[in-house]
């Protein structure tokens, strides 16, 4: 049986009259990624803070690498890496000095520390910015430095709290690749996100939080099965083409609907090749396309699906 590296058992956290976490349980086996999905205020960061020893649970218990987060806090801190929502680096120091500082605090010698710092700067494509103060870094670079800082001791367990929030698409993909690389090395990752797409791409299992409660848990495929499909929507150049367009798409085996207000037709699709089908079907009947968009299901769709499945209370 695979070792459980992150575990929460019935964790609740109450701040005054606000229940931030309500009986939350999770279990993450070694070398896997758990995606913690939820909106702002769902309790994601609170759970991360409990698991990383920054907050004590009001009730319940949690452990990381088999060590209780309350009674063995310092040992837990020695085994984890945490990248929060806001870059936790010293802006006045260079990237190199930031990483050396952390390595030294972790117990590395000066030589080990500078070796490890340069290694990480190379991995994270920051070698050119090695000696520049971190305040001159772009948002993406800062996020990479922050992640590098969490990885200095090559920890077994990494917590990433909304690692891609506020990043441009290219930086986001770069960060995903880094996380995938870590997992390939056997690191256990807990990742929080507001994006279903991100959880789908990175996580082996997903736990959905809403108002401090676990409302759904399972693999990405299991969750997505209950969620709406991807949608292709076409804004028509000529609104009067709507009937022709709906006909053509229906003939192609799709199930289009008409959005009169936006002069568009939309259809759920299953495979990415269906996008080509839509374009071809419209082209064949001479319908001119104004705009074309493929939309992924969002966290809201998951919430909707979960709520519709929940028994009426």
């Amino acid at each position: 049986m695979t070792e459980v590296m992150i575990e929460a058992r019935g964790v609740s956290k109450v701040f005054g009259s606000v229940t931030a976490l309500d009986d939350v349980s999770i279990s993450v086996p070694r070398g896997t990624v758990l995606g913690l999905l939820g909106h702002n205020g769902a309790g994601k960061t609170t759970l991360v803070n409990v698991l990383t020893t920054l907050l004590k649970p009001t009730s319940g218990s949690a452990s990381v690498a088999g060590l209780d987060v309350v009674s063995h806090g310092d040992q837990v801190r020695g085994r984890i890496g945490l990248t929060g929502q806001f870059a936790s680096v010293d802006e006045n120091m260079s990237g190199f000095d930031n990483l050396v500082l952390i390595a030294r605090l972790l117990g590395a010698t000066k030589k080990q520390a500078s070796g490890r710092a340069d290694e990480l700067l190379a991995t994270f494509d920051l070698t050119e910015a090695r000696d520049r103060p971190a305040k001159t870094y772009s948002g993406g670079m800062r996020r990479r430095l922050d992640l590098a800082a969490s990885l200095v001791g090559r920890p077994d367990v990494i917590f990433l709290d909304e690692p891609t929030t506020g990043l441009d698409p290219l930086s986001r993909i770069g960060l995903w690749e880094i996380v995938e690389g870590l997992v390939g090395d056997g690191t256990t990752v807990l990742l929080t996100t507001q994006y279903l797409e991100e959880a789908d791409r990175l996580a082996d299992t997903i736990t959905v939080l809403s108002k401090g409660k676990v409302v759904a848990a399972g693999t990405a495929a299991e969750l997505k099965a209950g969620v709406g499909k991807r949608t292709v929507s076409v804004v028509l150049a000529e609104p009067e083409d709507a009937a022709t367009a709906l006909n053509a798409l229906a003939k192609a085996g799709l199930h289009p609907v008409h959005d009169k207000a936006r002069h568009s037709v939309a259809t759920p699709v299953e495979k990415s090749t269906d996008l080509a089908t839509v374009v071809r079907a419209l082209d064949e009947v001479g319908v001119e396309v104004g705009e074309l968009a493929l939309t992924e299901p969002t966290l809201d769709d998951v919430y909707l699906a979960v709520n519709s499945e929940a028994p009426a209370a």
Binding site: Q75, G78, T187
Partner: peptide
């Protein structure tokens, strides 16, 4: 799952 080579820096 391959065990990672933790650097063993514990503080």
């Amino acid at each position: 799952v391959p065990r990672r080579n933790d650097l063993g820096w514990r503080g």
